[in-house]
């Protein structure tokens, strides 16, 4: 089958995945109300934290508060993205391995990694993503930067790279459940990693700064994209972010293929 129709089929399947997961979410009206309330409370919490930021006129690791706000905006965006897609799907991956539900995924003529990564969509992270975008816009404008189109495009690209890196790490951790079955809570590990990206990397003590830019890719999740939007990023860090994103996707796919060779399928 030619690639175009395969892509079309995948796209149509994903659309149905998402509409069915929204439908399943709507099935329980009371639960829906609770989720809406929880989302509003979370948003209020984030806004309160932000109001504390606005109250002070200092610098944070060489960043003006408004520039740091762009970092926080990107963090909020990524956090919302995790709640929308990463947590529901990749958390489920571990369960599917335990219960043997993975069998049904592997029997379908569809890329199993795509299926497992995009099967459900939880709408409750979407407001957070919107808030994140708003923060990025507000931070950029107030910091006085007049971003050019190239800076915005590079920034968008780097945000995508950050999302890709976060996704790949998360997927790799979840995929190891094929070997260990009972996985230590990958979700929490990744959340804390991401949480470190709330502030510009330069705000951390030097030792952590090194760790966050080399061993753990925290810098590439939020700081580098923010720098790109503000037009402050060095060519080197942009390139490094893109290369890392590319490698992480390739790595996660390679690991998944290897994992499937070792899949033993839950008994009967």
């Amino acid at each position: 089958m030619e690639p175009a129709s395969t892509i079309r089929r995948h796209a149509r399947s994903i659309a149905r995945f998402w509409s069915s997961s929204l439908a399943a979410e709507m099935e329980y009206q009371f639960n829906l109300l609770i989720e809406v309330a929880a989302t509003l409370i979370t948003l209020a919490g984030s806004l309160f934290t932000l109001s504390l930021f606005f109250g002070r006129g200092q610098q944070l690791g060489g960043w003006s508060w408004n520039a740091a706000l762009v970092v926080l905006g990107i963090y909020t965006l990524l956090n919302g993205f995790s709640s929308t897609l990463l947590r529901p799907n990749l958390g489920n991956l571990v369960k599917q391995v335990q219960s043997g539900g993975l069998d049904f995924v592997l029997l379908k003529p569809m890329d199993s990694q795509v299926w497992l990564s995009l099967r459900t969509l939880s709408p409750w992270g979407l407001p957070e993503m919107v808030l994140g975008l708003a923060l990025v816009v507000v931070g950029t404008i107030r910091s006085g930067a007049k971003p050019e189109t190239t800076a915005l495009l590079t920034g968008g690209l780097m945000v995508l790279a950050g999302i890709t890196i976060l996704y790949s790490l998360w997927f790799v951790l979840a995929a190891t459940s094929i070997w260990f079955v009972k996985i230590w809570n990958a979700t929490e590990v990744l959340r804390s990693l991401l949480a470190a990206g709330q502030f510009p990397v330069s705000a951390y003590p030097p030792a952590l700064r090194v760790v966050f830019s080399t061993i753990l890719p925290v810098a590439f999740l939020t700081t580098v994209p923010a720098e790109a939007i503000l037009g402050l990023a060095s060519g080197g860090s942009l390139l490094a972010g893109l290369v890392l994103a590319g490698l992480s996707v390739v790595g996660s796919r390679a690991l998944w293929r290897l994992a499937l060779r070792h899949y033993t399928s839950a008994s009967s």
């Binding site: 149509r12 995945f17 069915s20 439908a23 329980y28 003529p109």
Partner: peptide, 16 residues
């Protein structure tokens, strides 16, 4: 949580 028809719609898309 959904009627079988919803699952069938998903499978129909997956199998093109």
């Amino acid at each position: 949580d959904l009627p079988p028809l919803d699952s069938l719609r998903v499978n129909a898309a997956v199998y093109g």
